[in-house]
């Protein structure tokens, strides 16, 4: 115990630092609010007339929910993706400005340093995802305490995987400028091909069947791991799954474990 306790303190310290930095960073907080506002308020409400019913059976967009409800879980995932992957900036920052060395000369083992950092990053990302839940009222998503707890769990697991992914990115990118471009070319395509803003399942109605997507797009959606994360949150929050419900947890768990191990290898290599 006397050996473990100091290590736990160290993990806590690293975690705490990430949280303090993330919550004090006004820019990051504003980003965390503006994304859900843009996506739910502007886009969701703006596109609502195109998805609402005019004549029974003539809806182009057949899911058993409103567009806002359909979009809501995806916006949570978007917020988590941004925060997690931009966490990599904090890793690059530490490296550029020498703070990383302060930690590396400490008696903390490398894997625990990484764990503390990743836990901090994923807590911040989960927080950003949880902020979106405040808008549940606006999107007419009713939440029970059970649902909130399950959603937070899923969000944290997703954040963990994506944060590790961010660390992997950071170890391959040398400059901040390069990262900005890179993050946008990763986050937005992943988001758009995750069936976030349109449903994929053509079997819900005849109308939808007539409007199936080209195979290449369906393929991109299906190989995108974010698709299953969005699907899991939809299952929890609005009880709607496009894929077998077991896929979501499996993909998220695989991401969390896989990316953490890869990040561990990378981090051990870094000086």
């Amino acid at each position: 115990m006397s050996r473990i306790l100091p290590l736990l303190r160290g993990v806590y310290g690293i975690w705490l630092r990430e949280i303090l930095r993330a919550t004090r960073d006004r820019g990051q907080m504003i980003g965390g609010v503006s994304r859900p506002l843009v996506w739910l308020l502007i886009m969701g409400v703006g596109l609502n007339p195109y998805f609402r019913g005019e004549v029974f059976g003539e809806v182009r967009y057949v899911v058993p929910y409103t567009y806002l409800q359909f979009l809501f879980p995806a916006v949570i995932v978007l917020n988590i993706m941004y925060t997690s992957i931009q966490f990599a900036v904090s890793v690059i920052w530490d490296r550029e400005f020498g703070f990383l060395r302060e930690v590396l000369v400490s008696p903390m083992p490398r894997p625990l340093i990484l764990l503390g950092k990743v836990l901090g990053g994923s807590t911040a990302a989960t927080l950003h995802g949880a902020i979106v839940l405040i808008l549940a009222r606006f999107a007419d998503v009713t939440l029970t305490p059970d649902q909130v707890v399950m959603a937070l769990g899923a969000m944290f697991a997703l954040s963990f995987g994506l944060t590790c992914f961010g660390v992997l990115l950071a170890s391959r990118i040398r400059s901040f400028e390069g990262f900005g471009v890179f993050s946008n070319t990763i986050i937005l395509p992943l988001y758009f091909t995750s069936s976030s803003i349109f449903p994929l399942d053509p079997a819900l109605s005849r109308t939808q069947m007539a409007a199936t997507y080209p195979e290449w797009l369906v393929f991109m959606v299906q190989i995108n791991p974010i698709t299953y994360a969005v699907d899991l949150l939809r299952g929890i929050l609005i009880n709607f799954n496009q894929f077998p419900p077991a896929y979501g947890p499996a993909v998220i768990a695989a991401m969390a474990i896989g990316f953490f191990l890869l990040a561990l290898v990378d981090f051990g290599r870094s000086k």
């Binding site: 306790l5 100091p6 290590l7 303190r9 160290g10 806590y12 310290g13 690293i14 705490l16 630092r17 303090l20 930095r21 004090r24 960073d25 302060e102 930690v103 400490s106 008696p107 903390m108």
Partner: peptide, 16 residues
């Protein structure tokens, strides 16, 4: 972005 005290606190935590 941390205060002087927080920098030291962090160091103390990391050194257990």
């Amino acid at each position: 972005r941390l205060s002087a005290w927080e920098n030291l606190e962090f160091h103390g935590l990391v050194y257990g």
